[in-house]
């Protein structure tokens, strides 16, 4: 078992706390089948360093795990990590999580870029991402009003902290996914072929049973020739209403 990065500095009143979904991503990315897949794709010593992007980093626990365990996962120590989040407080917290996790390593320190405040992958240069990771807001619940992010992302003048109202809005952003819990994920999936690198891009997206993973996978395979979507991780909790899966999306060379 690879160590889980510390998130003890993160304020969970307004940033999503690592939970079963986060840990399923850690387990899947470090599972023998995925590390072997990723090493086949990225291990070549003199190839350019893989750029890992996580959208919606929250506490940063997943990105920090990848950054700190890059030797075990990719078989190389020059991996680049980049994150985005719509919650500005999450951006700062996650940066610290990743920096601390890398610092703890005696050797094999990978290269962390930044966490930028943004809407999904909208500011990412096309075809620059090698590994894309997304733990979306997947719960079927009403979406908050996305246009008010500026108010919610800023501590009001004269105040020391965010208000309760701001905090609940920020947490809502981290889990509420609209109809079928798929509204945000669908917007993100639209961007995936644009941001992934043509030759070796691969995406890991978490879905819950209510997101209808089989339908989502079929739709991805319809993107065009070469596109694949397979379930590569599962919480296996069939009795729970929130059965989670990780879908790997990639394009095979024809």
């Amino acid at each position: 078992m690879l160590p889980t990065p510390s998130t003890s500095h993160v304020c969970f009143d307004r940033v999503y706390e690592p939970a079963e979904d986060s840990y399923l991503l850690l387990d899947t990315l470090s599972s023998p089948s995925e590390t072997s897949f990723l090493q086949d794709r990225f291990k070549h010593a003199n190839s350019s360093p893989p750029l890992v992007l996580e959208v919606g980093v929250g506490s940063g626990v997943v990105l920090a795990f990848v950054a700190a365990n890059t030797q075990s996962i990719f078989g190389r120590q020059d991996t680049l990590t980049l994150g985005t989040d719509i919650n500005s407080f999450a951006c700062r917290a996650a940066s610290q999580t990743v920096r601390d996790a890398i610092k703890e390593r005696e050797n094999g320190r990978s290269v962390f870029l930044d966490v930028v405040n943004g809407d999904l992958g909208s500011a990412i240069r096309p075809h620059s991402i090698d590994v894309f990771i997304f733990n979306p807001p997947y719960v079927p619940a009403e979406l908050p009003d996305l246009s008010r992010h500026e108010y919610y992302n800023t501590i009001a003048e004269g105040k020391k902290a965010t208000s309760f109202q701001q905090d609940s809005y920020l947490l809502q952003l981290s889990y509420a996914g609209g109809e079928d819990g798929m509204v945000v994920t669908n917007r993100m999936l639209e961007q995936v072929p644009e941001i992934l690198s043509d030759e070796r891009g691969v995406a890991y997206v978490l879905l819950c049973a209510q997101n209808k993973p089989e339908v989502v996978k079929a739709r991805i395979r319809d993107w065009g020739s070469g596109w694949n979507a397979e379930t590569v991780g599962s919480s296996g909790n069939k009795a729970g209403w929130e059965k989670l899966v990780i879908v790997r999306i990639w394009k095979s060379a024809d």
Binding site: C91, R92, V115, V116, N117, D119, S122, L146, H149, N153
Partner: peptide, 13 residues
């Protein structure tokens, strides 16, 4: 504070 903000105002999204 070192964090770039790429969120767009409502009318540009």
């Amino acid at each position: 504070e070192g964090v770039a903000n790429f969120l767009l105002p409502g009318h540009l999204v």
